[in-house]
Simulated scan of single mutants.
Amino acid sequence: MAKSPGGHAFNAFRGTLIGAAEVVPGISGGTVALITGVYEKLIGGAGFITSGLRMAAADVPRGRGVSRAAAEMKKAEWGTLLPLLVGMAAALVLGAKLLAPVIEEHPQFAYALFFGLVLASLWVPYSGSGRRWTAGNYLLGLLVAAGAFVLTGLPPAQMPTHPLIVGLAGAVAICALVLPGVSGSFILLTLGLYEPTMEAVNERDLGYVAVFGTGCVVGLALFVKLLKWLLENYHHMTLVVMTGLMAGSLRALWPWQDDDRQLLAPSGSVGLTFALMALGIAAVVAVLAVEHRAHAKREQGEQRGGGRGRHARVSVGASD
């Protein structure tokens, strides 16, 4: 069924939210993709695209056509992916120019809002598998959360802007786009490459951007297939780990911390700060309520049409 223009616009808006999140240190684009209900479509589409590109790279030197690659790429839901990608690209450029300076000037208030967003969105992976958590699941989630808590408390470093370093940083940072709880911008901030990367985007430094983008493509190709396989074969356990990552990463968004990421007690405009946290929580609850209502309508339509979509959805996580 073709997407309506309104559907394309809504997916572009979702992409804008994901792209804006990638500009903000501490909040993961993958988390926003989960909240907005496009996470598994994004992962699945990226998997088909990277497989198609590998097929094309293997076939062309041998003098073969690219029909296999084209067939593989057609499996992606382009009606959803293209608007998402357009929105993400626009938000990355505008966010680097507009959003990053606001966060630098008012970090306490910005982080309070994002803290509320991520805290409320923990419900998404926690409940997403449709299975009850066991004691072992809770233990694994706590261990992953502890690891993420420690990693997000590491003091910022300063890495040289050598092309090899920039490419490796891109390969690592792009994993945050597909892994909820891990922020690509926060990784760059930890490496000391956040400001050089934002400056390169703003100043249209095409050399830096090309090297960074190449690293992102390589990292995405290596990581996304693994994550897609985990979601298909170990859906529940993968979401347990994602929940732990998101919970531990809340440390990076605590509004009161110093330049070395030491956590501090609340002080200065405490009421407004907690009000912004509550606003972030309310925003996620509202989005989840809308998504739940839309999902209920889709299930009703599938049941009238024979229920095939519902059974397909259940089978995704049934193998673990």
Rank of each mutant, 00 (worst) to 15 (best):
M1K: 02
G207P: 01
G6W: 12
A296P: 07
G306V: 01
F274G: 00
A135I: 10
Q300E: 13
E22M: 13
R68G: 09
L82V: 15
L168D: 13
N137S: 15
A145R: 02
L139E: 10
L82T: 14
I174N: 12
E104P: 02
L143W: 02
M55D: 11
K41E: 13
T197W: 03
G271K: 03
G192T: 07
S127G: 10
G6L: 10
L81D: 14
A96Y: 07
E195Y: 01
A265L: 14
A69G: 05
L85W: 10
G153S: 04
D258C: 05
L263R: 04
L17M: 15
L179P: 10
P101I: 05
E203L: 09
G87R: 00
R293E: 15
A286H: 07
A76I: 09
M73A: 14
G141C: 14
K225Y: 03
P61L: 09
A71R: 15
R204N: 05
V241G: 08
K228S: 15
S269D: 01
G244V: 12
V38L: 01
L81C: 12
E72G: 01
G37W: 04
Q303N: 12
G130H: 07
K297A: 13
G271R: 08
A169D: 06
G219A: 02
L154G: 01
G15Y: 01
L143G: 11
V209I: 15
Y111V: 02
K228F: 13
F48C: 09
A12R: 05
S183T: 01
G271L: 06
R313F: 09
G305E: 12
V24K: 02
G65Q: 00
L168S: 08
H235E: 06
A46E: 12
L42D: 06
M73R: 12
L94C: 08
C175L: 11
A12W: 06
A70Q: 07
A135C: 04
L42C: 08
Y138D: 00
E199A: 12
A173C: 13
F223G: 07
T31M: 04
G215F: 07
V284P: 09
A252K: 08
G26S: 08
K75C: 13
M88V: 13
S269Q: 00
T197F: 00
A90P: 08
H106M: 11
L250G: 06
Q158I: 12
S183G: 04
G309F: 05
E72Q: 12
L231P: 06
Y138T: 03
L81G: 13
E199Q: 04
I18G: 15
T273E: 00
L179Q: 03
V38W: 00
K297E: 06
P107I: 10
P125N: 00
A56K: 08
L17H: 13
A76K: 07
L82I: 15
A20R: 11
F13N: 05
A12C: 14
K3M: 12
R298L: 14
F149P: 02
K75E: 15
V285Y: 08
E291M: 06
V178G: 01
I18W: 11
I49M: 14
T31E: 06
T190H: 02
L168N: 09
L99Q: 11
M198C: 05
Y234R: 14
